[in-house]
Design a protein around this nucleic acid. Structure first.
Lengths: 65, 65
DNA sequence: TCGATATTTATCGTTTGACGATAAGGCGGC
DNA sequence: GCCGCCTTATCGTCAAACGATAAATATCGA
């Protein structure tokens, strides 16, 4: 569902770096990445997509492409 | 950002019907559709995508395709 | 123009959960 | 063993989803 891991690898970016760039804690990003978050603010989604230069659909999805 | 309108038209489904199918109030779905929601629960996103037979990326996105 | 249907907007209350701060634990590589 | 990276956990605050409900507005066809 949350495909952050793939995107990070593709971008060769660590979760730690992404956390700094989007301005949120590593802990909360990790929760999101590992699929433990129950919801997300659009502002957060936007910030992540901005830094990863991707679309929400690249981050969220049920099928694997 | 939230492209619910397009999907509904394509599916020829009213917001009212979608509300019944996903089991949430029309009022809150309207807020989501008109881009006034600040966040979304993954469970809600999932329910909507299930009924519209689409992916999160079809519902959320910054670019228009 | 009337009326039915659909949607938007608003208010209030409850509850969920994001997110920050922080700390501790795990893990692999050097 | 140390270090960088990540996960997990706890606690607190606060934002906001979502329900229930009602009223206003829009749309459209007869």
């Amino acid at each position: 569902m949350v495909k952050l891991d793939d995107l990070l690898h593709e971008r060769r970016m660590t979760l730690t770096e992404l956390a700094e760039r989007v301005g949120m804690t590593l802990a909360n990003l990790s929760i999101l990445k590992t699929g433990k978050a129950k919801a997300i603010r659009f502002s957060t989604l936007e910030a992540i997509c901005r830094e990863l230069e991707c679309q929400p659909g690249d981050l969220l999805g049920y099928e694997q492409e």
